[in-house]
């Protein structure tokens, strides 16, 4: 049996009567870099948040390293049965957020050490070493004593990536990591992400950066109307899209 780092089967998610995910399945093997495309409001963030249970889905199955997450149905919502299981799995899926979501009352160093120390319970000395390693990797070590508000968006997002890496997770989830950035700051973040992909890290990337999706990912998913409209390898998807919707989406994206 193939081991999937992360697998979601037939996910359904609705907000009140609004069906955001109708039936979405994704799977990521070790080393996969999967780009998720789709218009704004197509459910990309919701899909990511269902995989780490920031949102509870209304239906479907979730597996982490082929271990099924146990749910019980409660008022139509799938609520996890085993809280410990959820916390353990979340600590192995690290998320990078569109708005960075850094902890504003902590320095950069404290941001990166926080979860390793208080979630993984590794000792402070090792966490400090980790924090240095990953801040250095994203090229922002010299700002370690600054506070998030003192950094540019691009710098904050690199800290967000270092914070995610410091958990030494099995999979990285990126939710439009460059969408909140001024255009001139986008590249510094994309460069870091390319480096991570080249290291063979497993990544799920929601993005509007078509070049990144085309050049870096080995699989692309196009979400439309709560369903996967088309998926496959990037060469095929970008050069010969089957679906008219994807074609239209790519035309719009290429113009901007």
């Amino acid at each position: 049996m193939t081991e999937y780092t992360l697998q979601a089967k037939n996910l359904k998610k609705r907000f009140a009567s609004h069906e955001v995910l109708k039936d979405v399945s994704i799977k990521a093997k070790k080393g996969d870099v999967i780009s998720i495309l789709g218009a704004s409001g197509s459910g990309k963030s919701t899909l990511l948040k269902c995989t780490n249970l920031l949102q509870y889905p209304n239906g479907g199955e979730l597996y982490f390293h082929n271990e099924q997450i146990k749910f019980k149905l409660k008022n139509g919502l799938m609520v996890p049965v085993d809280n410990k299981q959820v916390l353990r799995i979340r600590s192995k899926l690290s998320m990078v957020f569109q708005q960075f979501n850094l902890w504003t009352h902590m320095t950069i160093l404290e941001n990166v050490m926080e979860a390793p120390v208080h979630v993984l319970k590794i000792n402070k000395k090792d966490a400090l070493e980790r924090a240095h390693t990953y801040l250095d990797k994203v090229g922002i070590l010299e700002k370690k004593d600054a506070y998030p508000a003192q950094l540019s968006g691009g710098q904050q997002q690199r800290v967000g990536i270092a914070r995610a890496l410091a958990m030494e997770p099995d999979i990285l989830l990126f939710d439009e990591p460059t969408s909140a950035l001024d255009p001139e700051l986008v590249n510094e973040v994309l460069l870091v992400m390319r480096k991570l992909a080249n290291e063979g890290r497993t990544m799920l990337v929601v993005t509007h950066e078509m070049n990144f999706a085309k050049e870096v990912s080995n699989y692309v998913i196009f979400l439309h109307n709560g369903l996967i409209e088309e998926e496959g390898n990037p060469q095929k998807l970008f050069n010969h899209p089957n679906s008219a919707k994807l074609n239209q989406f790519l035309n719009v994206m290429n113009k901007s």
């Binding site: 809280n83 600590s91 899926l93 960075f100 979501n101 902890w103």
Partner: peptide
Amino acid sequence: RKNEIEAAIAFGMSTWKAYTRI
């Protein structure tokens, strides 16, 4: 800010941890 709570939960903090730490 909901953002910061979201990050705490996403990194595997329990509600207690998220409140006492963040």
